[in-house]
């Protein structure tokens, strides 16, 4: 039984660094994103300060429309911020041009999508090695072997996506995200399109990637059960950080989410 209790964090609290000893892999400072103007202005993200530690598996959790996806897009440099800063390692991704952002995506960041997004005309292996090839690099065979072993893809490398199950496709996608040994992997609802068994499998692979391969993963999810696989859960509501749970369990994560809903309903 997990006994962690949900502790609300005041709005003006300093950035939540769970273990100060670890250098943050990703940081946000006063990160703000607004859509529309005047009356119709929507603050999707409202001055968020948050650190994500390297070598950790962090889940960003919140209800629909809370701004969790926007936060991830800004941290990954996929979308431009209205104000504030986002850093991957020591590189500020806010304010980089497209060319520099492409370079960041090639070497420093990996992505896992809800819909897998594998290229249908390539085999599993070709899909995995594609990012390295696009960057004009050579594939590290040792690392590829490690990934394939860890993710259990050994017998599937010559198959095309259409011949793989959803869980297998998502494992290929994880391998693709990790092949360039990026500083951080962003996963957007990675289990959203999977049945619960495949979902559990994928989540344990993500956790193993962090524990055994020393990677950093930030996962966006609205599923408390998925969030429980993480080392830490950052709760977000109405575009603001609304809570922080270390070593979560499905129950504590759900409790946190419920608390947000009650806050929102009040």
């Amino acid at each position: 039984m997990d006994t962690t209790v949900y502790v609300p964090i005041p709005d003006d609290a300093p950035a939540a660094g769970a273990r100060p000893a670890v250098t943050p892999a990703v940081r946000a400072r006063a990160l703000t994103k607004t859509y529309g103007r005047g009356e119709a202005e929507v603050r999707a993200l409202d001055g968020v300060d948050v650190d994500f530690a390297a070598g950790r598996f962090t889940a960003i959790m919140g209800p629909s429309g809370s701004g969790k996806s926007t936060l991830m897009h800004l941290l990954a440099g996929l979308d431009s911020a209205t104000s504030g800063q986002a850093f991957v390692g020591s590189t500020e991704v806010t304010g980089l041009n497209d060319k520099a952002l492409t370079a960041v995506r090639r070497t420093r960041v990996g992505f896992v999508f809800q819909q897998f997004n594998l290229l249908p005309m390539f085999t599993a292996e070709q899909n995995i090695t594609l990012p390295v090839e696009l960057a004009g690099g050579t594939v590290d065979k040792m690392w590829l072997g490690t990934l394939v072993d860890t993710l259990g893809l050994g017998k599937r490398l010559t198959h095309r996506p259409a011949e793989l199950s959803g869980g297998q496709q998502q494992r290929v996608a994880i391998a693709r995200a990790l092949i360039a040994q990026p500083d951080v992997v962003f996963a957007d609802e990675p289990t959203g399109n999977l049945d619960s068994r495949s979902g559990a499998e994928v989540l344990s692979f993500l956790r193993r990637s962090v524990r055994e391969l020393g990677r950093t993963i930030i996962m966006v999810t609205h599923d408390p059960a998925a969030a429980a696989y993480a080392d830490r859960v950052v709760l977000i509501a109405d575009g603001k950080i609304a809570g922080d749970i270390t070593d979560p369990t499905p129950e504590s994560a759900l409790a946190g989410l419920d608390a947000l809903r009650t806050v929102a309903a009040r």
Binding site: D98, Q115, L134
Partner: peptide
């Protein structure tokens, strides 16, 4: 979607 994916995993313009 595929073009976007490729861009996300490091395909330049």
């Amino acid at each position: 979607r595929e073009s976007a994916t490729l861009r996300a995993i490091g395909l330049s313009k």
